[in-house]
Amino acid sequence: MGISLMYYLLVSGGLFALGLAGVLIRRNMLLLLLAVELMLNGANVALIGFSRHWDVTDGQIFALVVMVVAAAEVVIGLGLIVAVYRQRIVLDVDELDQLKG
């Protein structure tokens, strides 16, 4: 017997909600990336929990794939942030307003 599914889902839901709140509240680009990572990892915890609950390995493989994807996404994000910084545009998303209409 291990930890019951409910605890996995509680932790996962908490992480995901924290991430979502972070995306909505935070204005700094780096922290936005961080918040998105929290959301993805929240999903990972749920995947592992469900995987144990159903006693299949599908969820664990899915979680591994998600980790790779999350890493790729952060690399792109950081690259873009460096490019923006070189152009001396501020990193506050509210200041990104050249495109509107």
């Binding site: 995901f16 680009m29 929240g42 929990g49 899915f62 994807v69 996404e73 923006v84 495109l99």
Partner: peptide, 29 residues
């Protein structure tokens, strides 16, 4: 403008992906 477009797409797209992933997780669950 191109950089701004890329960053906006990245942030919104990443949130979209996270929502999609959580949804797929529940379907699996």
């Amino acid at each position: 403008r191109s950089l701004e477009a890329g960053l906006k797409y990245l942030i919104v797209g990443a949130v979209g992906s996270a929502l999609l992933l959580y949804g797929l997780t529940f379907v699996f669950g």
